[in-house]
């Protein structure tokens, strides 16, 4: 119970997001209409992705400081979950865009940034698979992970501020536009959806890590 409280919390929060997000009343905005509910699912997935990738980089740095394969397993697992979240975020975003902007893909700078992030992490996995030596793979993977993250960061957070975007809050503030949400929505969003999806991501990651730790047991204790 002491160890699994956050898993229970995660389920409760997600259940609350799902029920509250689909059934509770939302403000009626032009163009957005009922699609505004997607903010509970699309935006937290991006938050989750950024958090997963950040965790991945932290473990990559930890690996370079102290070459322990466990750190490498952590970094890869977080990158995997982050990629899954990125794909889901891209899909939910494309569905949303189809009903609000008229088409699923409009070369918006943030869509490009998302696609870039996914390509970078896909390349990360290809790079890892092309190296057979385990320690070398972990080291080169960690170096690319850190380098790519450092390059991705300005692309996702600074460039969108300079170039015009279809996303709300385009002028000066990338990310969710707080003006579109009323107080009730904010409660579901910040208290339910964002922590809920983040915890779910961590949960999935811990499962991957546990599996990898068991399969690679003989490598870890040599």
């Amino acid at each position: 119970m002491r160890k699994s409280w956050w898993k229970i919390l995660c389920s409760v929060l997600l259940l609350y997001t799902l029920v509250g997000g689909l059934l509770l009343d939302v403000p009626h905005k032009k163009i957005l209409n009922e699609t505004i509910r997607n903010i509970y699912f699309h935006v937290p997935l991006w938050f989750g992705m950024m958090i997963m990738f950040t965790c991945s980089v932290i473990y990559a740095i930890k690996y370079l400081r102290k070459p322990d394969l466990t750190n490498d397993i952590y970094a890869t697992a977080f990158a995997t979950t982050g990629t899954v979240y990125g794909v889901l975020g891209l899909i939910t975003g494309a569905i949303w865009a189809k009903y609000t902007w008229g088409k699923p893909w409009s070369n918006d700078i943030k869509q490009l940034g998302a696609a870039m992030a996914l390509l970078i992490y896909a390349a990360f996995f290809v790079l890892r698979n092309s190296i057979t030596d385990i320690d070398k793979r972990a080291r080169v993977g960690a170096v690319y992970n850190i380098f790519a993250f450092a390059m991705l960061f300005p692309a996702l957070w600074i460039v969108p501020r300079l170039v015009e975007s279809l996303h709300p809050g385009g002028a000066g503030n990338p990310g969710a536009d707080p003006r579109d949400m009323d107080a009730r929505m904010r409660i579901i969003f910040w208290l339910g959806a964002v922590p809920g999806f983040t915890l779910l991501g961590v949960w999935i990651t811990t499962l991957i890590i546990r599996l990898r730790l068991i399969t690679d047991k003989n490598l870890l204790h040599v």
Binding site: L112, G113, M116, A117, L119, I120, A123, V126, L127, S130, I131, K136, V140, V143, Y144, F147, A148, M151, L152, P154, A155, V159
Partner: peptide
């Protein structure tokens, strides 16, 4: 980075193009 892996030339394109986009 690519020099450490096999198929270096193609890996460079795979790794580099997404990074250089911004």
């Amino acid at each position: 980075i690519a020099a450490k892996a096999q198929q270096q030339a193609s890996l460079m394109a795979i790794m580099g193009f997404p990074v250089i986009i911004p």
